[in-house]
Amino acid sequence: MAHQWGMVIDLDRCTGCEACVVACHAENNISTVGEDQAARGRAKHWIRVERYYEGEFPDVKTKFMPVLCQQCDAAPCEPVCPTFASYHTIEGLNGQVYNRCIGTRYCANACPYNVRFFNFYNPVWDKPLNLQLNPDVSVREVGVMEKCTFCVQRIKASEIQASSEKRDVKDGEIQPACVQSCPTKAMVFGDLSDPQSEVSRLARSNRATKLLGELGTLPKVTYLQRDSWHAGEDS
Protein backbone atom coordinates (compact mmCIF):
# COMPACT_ATOMS: atom_id res chain seq x y z
CA MET A 1 0.00 0.00 0.00
CA ALA A 2 1.22 3.48 -0.83
CA HIS A 3 2.38 5.69 1.99
CA GLN A 4 -0.12 8.18 3.32
CA TRP A 5 1.86 11.08 4.69
CA GLY A 6 0.48 12.89 7.67
CA MET A 7 1.48 15.14 10.50
CA VAL A 8 0.66 15.65 14.15
CA ILE A 9 1.14 19.03 15.82
CA ASP A 10 1.11 19.05 19.61
CA LEU A 11 -0.21 22.43 20.72
CA ASP A 12 0.88 21.67 24.27
CA ARG A 13 4.47 21.79 23.08
CA CYS A 14 4.25 24.61 20.53
CA THR A 15 5.60 27.93 21.80
CA GLY A 16 4.89 29.92 18.64
CA CYS A 17 8.59 30.62 18.07
CA GLU A 18 8.21 30.49 14.27
CA ALA A 19 11.38 28.52 13.63
CA CYS A 20 9.16 26.48 11.30
CA VAL A 21 8.14 29.59 9.36
CA VAL A 22 11.68 30.66 8.55
CA ALA A 23 12.90 27.08 8.02
CA CYS A 24 10.16 26.70 5.42
CA HIS A 25 11.18 29.89 3.63
CA ALA A 26 14.76 28.65 3.46
CA GLU A 27 13.90 25.14 2.32
CA ASN A 28 11.22 25.94 -0.23
CA ASN A 29 12.55 29.02 -2.02
CA ILE A 30 9.64 31.12 -0.86
CA SER A 31 10.30 34.66 -1.94
CA THR A 32 9.83 37.68 0.28
CA VAL A 33 7.48 40.20 -1.29
CA GLY A 34 8.39 43.38 0.60
CA GLU A 35 6.36 45.78 2.70
CA ASP A 36 4.01 47.14 0.03
CA GLN A 37 2.93 43.75 -1.28
CA ALA A 38 2.75 42.35 2.25
CA ALA A 39 0.37 45.20 3.10
CA ARG A 40 -1.86 43.96 0.28
CA GLY A 41 -2.01 40.49 1.78
CA ARG A 42 0.43 38.97 -0.69
CA ALA A 43 3.09 37.69 1.68
CA LYS A 44 3.68 33.97 1.27
CA HIS A 45 4.09 31.83 4.37
CA TRP A 46 3.37 28.19 3.63
CA ILE A 47 3.23 27.69 7.36
CA ARG A 48 2.12 30.39 9.75
CA VAL A 49 1.60 30.58 13.49
CA GLU A 50 -1.87 31.75 14.43
CA ARG A 51 -2.20 33.41 17.79
CA TYR A 52 -5.47 33.63 19.73
CA TYR A 53 -6.24 35.71 22.79
CA GLU A 54 -9.18 34.97 25.05
CA GLY A 55 -10.23 37.27 27.90
CA GLU A 56 -8.94 40.57 29.14
CA PHE A 57 -5.79 41.44 31.03
CA PRO A 58 -4.71 40.05 33.44
CA ASP A 59 -6.90 36.99 32.81
CA VAL A 60 -5.81 36.66 29.24
CA LYS A 61 -5.21 33.24 27.74
CA THR A 62 -3.00 32.97 24.71
CA LYS A 63 -2.75 30.13 22.28
CA PHE A 64 -0.55 29.42 19.29
CA MET A 65 -1.46 27.19 16.41
CA PRO A 66 0.80 26.52 13.42
CA VAL A 67 -1.30 26.24 10.27
CA LEU A 68 -0.07 24.76 7.03
CA CYS A 69 -1.73 22.93 4.15
CA GLN A 70 -3.76 20.20 5.82
CA GLN A 71 -3.27 17.85 2.83
CA CYS A 72 -6.97 16.99 2.98
CA ASP A 73 -8.22 13.67 1.71
CA ALA A 74 -11.39 15.43 0.56
CA ALA A 75 -9.68 18.60 -0.49
CA PRO A 76 -11.89 21.50 -1.58
CA CYS A 77 -9.03 22.90 -3.66
CA GLU A 78 -8.81 19.92 -6.00
CA PRO A 79 -12.19 19.64 -7.75
CA VAL A 80 -12.36 23.37 -8.51
CA CYS A 81 -9.14 23.47 -10.50
CA PRO A 82 -9.99 23.68 -14.21
CA THR A 83 -6.54 22.49 -15.29
CA PHE A 84 -5.98 19.68 -12.77
CA ALA A 85 -3.00 21.58 -11.37
CA SER A 86 -4.38 20.81 -7.92
CA TYR A 87 -4.69 17.08 -7.70
CA HIS A 88 -4.42 14.22 -5.24
CA THR A 89 -1.16 12.31 -5.39
CA ILE A 90 -0.89 8.57 -4.91
CA GLU A 91 0.67 9.17 -1.52
CA GLY A 92 -2.21 11.35 -0.38
CA LEU A 93 -0.70 14.78 -0.82
CA ASN A 94 -2.55 17.70 -2.36
CA GLY A 95 -0.18 18.12 -5.27
CA GLN A 96 0.27 21.43 -7.01
CA VAL A 97 1.62 21.10 -10.54
CA TYR A 98 3.02 24.51 -11.37
CA ASN A 99 3.21 23.79 -15.10
CA ARG A 100 -0.50 23.26 -15.27
CA CYS A 101 -1.47 26.21 -13.11
CA ILE A 102 -2.97 29.10 -15.04
CA GLY A 103 -3.67 31.20 -12.00
CA THR A 104 -7.43 31.15 -11.72
CA ARG A 105 -7.01 31.15 -7.93
CA TYR A 106 -10.19 29.08 -7.58
CA CYS A 107 -8.29 26.73 -5.28
CA ALA A 108 -7.33 29.54 -2.89
CA ASN A 109 -10.94 30.64 -2.75
CA ALA A 110 -12.09 27.10 -2.05
CA CYS A 111 -9.52 26.37 0.65
CA PRO A 112 -10.96 26.97 4.12
CA TYR A 113 -7.51 27.13 5.71
CA ASN A 114 -6.03 30.08 3.81
CA VAL A 115 -2.86 28.20 3.04
CA ARG A 116 -2.55 28.80 -0.71
CA PHE A 117 -0.51 31.69 -2.01
CA PHE A 118 -0.48 33.32 -5.39
CA ASN A 119 2.51 34.83 -7.15
CA PHE A 120 1.31 38.25 -8.19
CA TYR A 121 4.76 39.05 -9.56
CA ASN A 122 7.84 37.19 -10.53
CA PRO A 123 9.81 36.61 -7.36
CA VAL A 124 12.87 38.80 -7.00
CA TRP A 125 16.11 38.16 -5.14
CA ASP A 126 18.59 40.98 -4.80
CA LYS A 127 21.83 39.34 -5.85
CA PRO A 128 23.57 37.44 -4.41
CA LEU A 129 20.60 36.37 -2.25
CA ASN A 130 19.65 34.08 -5.15
CA LEU A 131 22.57 31.87 -4.11
CA GLN A 132 20.55 30.74 -1.08
CA LEU A 133 18.02 29.02 -3.35
CA ASN A 134 17.55 25.30 -2.81
CA PRO A 135 18.29 23.55 -6.12
CA ASP A 136 15.98 20.67 -5.13
CA VAL A 137 12.90 22.88 -5.27
CA SER A 138 11.31 24.71 -8.20
CA VAL A 139 11.12 28.47 -8.09
CA ARG A 140 7.59 29.50 -8.94
CA GLU A 141 6.96 32.29 -11.39
CA VAL A 142 4.29 34.95 -11.75
CA GLY A 143 0.74 33.68 -12.16
CA VAL A 144 1.28 30.43 -10.30
CA MET A 145 -0.31 29.24 -7.08
CA GLU A 146 1.93 27.68 -4.45
CA LYS A 147 1.52 26.04 -1.05
CA CYS A 148 3.02 23.63 1.44
CA THR A 149 4.14 20.38 -0.19
CA PHE A 150 5.06 18.53 3.03
CA CYS A 151 8.57 19.06 1.62
CA VAL A 152 7.91 16.58 -1.17
CA GLN A 153 11.54 17.01 -2.31
CA ARG A 154 12.66 15.50 0.99
CA ILE A 155 10.07 12.72 0.71
CA LYS A 156 11.28 11.89 -2.80
CA ALA A 157 14.95 12.00 -1.76
CA SER A 158 14.31 9.61 1.13
CA GLU A 159 12.28 7.27 -1.05
CA ILE A 160 15.04 7.19 -3.66
CA GLN A 161 17.64 6.60 -0.96
CA ALA A 162 15.54 3.79 0.55
CA SER A 163 14.96 2.12 -2.80
CA SER A 164 18.68 2.23 -3.58
CA GLU A 165 19.24 0.34 -0.33
CA LYS A 166 16.35 -2.00 -1.21
CA ARG A 167 14.31 -1.19 1.89
CA ASP A 168 11.24 0.81 2.84
CA VAL A 169 11.43 4.30 4.26
CA LYS A 170 11.95 4.13 8.02
CA ASP A 171 9.61 5.86 10.45
CA GLY A 172 11.07 9.26 11.32
CA GLU A 173 13.49 9.18 8.40
CA ILE A 174 11.62 11.93 6.56
CA GLN A 175 11.45 15.27 8.27
CA PRO A 176 9.95 18.26 6.51
CA ALA A 177 11.91 21.44 7.24
CA CYS A 178 9.40 22.65 9.84
CA VAL A 179 9.50 19.36 11.72
CA GLN A 180 13.27 19.21 11.66
CA SER A 181 13.69 22.68 13.12
CA CYS A 182 10.93 22.64 15.77
CA PRO A 183 12.76 23.23 19.08
CA THR A 184 10.03 21.72 21.26
CA LYS A 185 9.44 18.76 18.94
CA ALA A 186 5.80 19.80 18.61
CA MET A 187 5.59 18.42 15.07
CA VAL A 188 5.81 14.79 14.03
CA PHE A 189 5.68 13.57 10.44
CA GLY A 190 5.20 10.08 9.12
CA ASP A 191 3.16 7.44 7.37
CA LEU A 192 -0.48 7.23 8.48
CA SER A 193 -0.93 3.94 6.63
CA ASP A 194 1.46 2.33 9.11
CA PRO A 195 -0.42 1.94 12.40
CA GLN A 196 2.88 1.48 14.25
CA SER A 197 4.35 4.80 13.15
CA GLU A 198 4.81 7.59 15.67
CA VAL A 199 2.47 9.86 13.76
CA SER A 200 -0.28 7.20 13.74
CA ARG A 201 0.19 6.56 17.44
CA LEU A 202 -0.08 10.26 18.31
CA ALA A 203 -3.04 10.78 15.98
CA ARG A 204 -4.98 8.30 18.14
CA SER A 205 -4.47 10.49 21.25
CA ASN A 206 -7.60 11.58 23.06
CA ARG A 207 -6.37 15.16 22.60
CA ALA A 208 -6.51 14.78 18.82
CA THR A 209 -8.68 17.14 16.76
CA LYS A 210 -8.80 18.23 13.16
CA LEU A 211 -8.85 21.85 12.17
CA LEU A 212 -12.33 22.64 10.82
CA GLY A 213 -12.92 18.91 10.77
CA GLU A 214 -16.67 19.54 10.68
CA LEU A 215 -16.31 20.65 7.07
CA GLY A 216 -15.56 17.08 6.09
CA THR A 217 -12.25 17.90 4.44
CA LEU A 218 -10.53 14.92 6.11
CA PRO A 219 -7.28 16.75 6.92
CA LYS A 220 -4.11 14.69 7.30
CA VAL A 221 -2.79 17.10 9.89
CA THR A 222 -3.93 16.29 13.42
CA TYR A 223 -3.73 18.82 16.24
CA LEU A 224 -3.28 17.69 19.82
CA GLN A 225 -5.05 20.21 22.02
CA ARG A 226 -3.40 22.22 24.79
CA ASP A 227 -3.35 20.26 27.99
CA SER A 228 -3.68 21.51 31.53
CA TRP A 229 -1.45 20.90 34.51
CA HIS A 230 -1.73 17.53 36.18
CA ALA A 231 -4.09 16.20 33.58
CA GLY A 232 -1.57 13.38 33.69
CA GLU A 233 -2.58 11.69 30.52
CA ASP A 234 -0.44 9.48 28.46
CA SER A 235 0.16 10.67 24.95
Binding site: T89, I90, E91, S138, T149, V152, K156
Partner: peptide
Protein backbone atom coordinates in the same frame (compact mmCIF):
# COMPACT_ATOMS: atom_id res chain seq x y z
CA UNK B 1 7.72 3.45 -12.91
CA UNK B 2 5.50 6.04 -11.24
CA UNK B 3 3.74 8.51 -13.49
CA UNK B 4 2.36 10.52 -10.59
CA UNK B 5 2.97 14.22 -11.35
CA UNK B 6 5.03 14.82 -8.19
CA UNK B 7 7.44 12.09 -9.21
CA UNK B 8 9.17 14.75 -11.33
CA UNK B 9 7.36 18.05 -10.85
CA UNK B 10 7.93 19.78 -7.49
Amino acid sequence: ASVDCVTCHF
